[in-house]
């Protein structure tokens, strides 16, 4: 009882701080200096229509590299924590009920479309909302459908690891190419900027975001596969 009282007291304090923040909040009337720079310079400098993508991939590309690294570490630690000790007996092969015609046919029909949509989302990241992270999540959801329809099938960790490593190396490689050929690490102007608003424009942004998408998709898939393979307590 006294614990609950303390919790409520603490939350009242935090709530008072939040109320103070809200009462004194004045919305900006115009963009601040940083945002104005991004809004003005994105189109002429980088040729990308989506300013958020331009910030994530180019202006703050190093942060994205860090973010992808954090995701990789998370996937690796999830794999490590959930790994079956090799001394464990082989996983008991329970006879699961078959997944059912609807799920199997649906998977066969939907999986290519889901993968295609994921690829569309991450190749058009510089033009429309979306990009590598969203596309990667969509690809991982296709993987999830496969996990649901074939629960006992062992997926190739090796394939996921290869896709993940190659995408990561390519991401860093393009970044280093930016130092050599253009203005700095992850500069997208190593390729011609092209016509504003077309698919093959904005220099290297579609290519970088494709690799980010593959890497993120592989990392989420690896988390899902690891969690789903912990069957049978």
């Amino acid at each position: 009882m006294i614990k609950r009282f303390a919790v409520i007291l603490l939350l009242l304090g935090i709530g008072a701080i939040f109320t103070g923040l809200m009462v004194n909040y004045v919305p900006d009337k115009a963009l601040n200096v940083t945002a104005r720079y991004y809004a003005e310079q994105t189109a002429p400098d980088l040729g990308a229509a989506n300013i958020v993508t331009a910030i994530i991939v180019t202006y703050r590309g190093l942060d994205t590299l860090g973010e992808v690294t954090v995701l990789f570490l998370t996937a690796a630690i999830v794999g490590l924590v959930l790994a079956r000790g090799s001394s464990d007996e082989a996983p008991a092969r329970r006879d699961l009920p078959p997944p059912g015609e609807l799920l199997l046919t649906g998977t066969r029909l939907l999986l290519p479309l889901i993968l295609l949509f994921g690829a569309y989302v991450f190749t058009h990241g510089h033009l429309t909302p979306g990009g590598g992270f969203q596309g990667g999540a969509i690809i991982a959801s296709g993987m999830l459908l496969m996990l649901l329809s074939h629960p006992l099938r062992r997926f190739g960790h090796r394939l996921i690891a290869i896709v993940e490593s190659i995408a990561g190396l390519a991401f860093v490689g393009i970044g280093v190419l930016g130092i050599a050929l253009a203005g700095g690490f992850l500069d997208n102007r190593i390729l011609p900027l092209g016509t504003f608003g077309e698919l093959f424009s904005a220099g290297a942004i579609p290519i970088i975001y494709t690799f980010v998408g593959l890497k993120v998709g592989a990392e989420f898939s690896s988390m899902l596969v690891n969690l789903s393979e912990t069957e049978d307590l």
Binding site: N50, V52, T53, V121, P129, G130, G131, F133, Q134, A137, I138, S141
Partner: peptide
């Protein structure tokens, strides 16, 4: 962008 990320992830 954020809406898509939140919905998917």
């Amino acid at each position: 962008d954020v809406a898509m990320t939140e919905a998917a992830i």
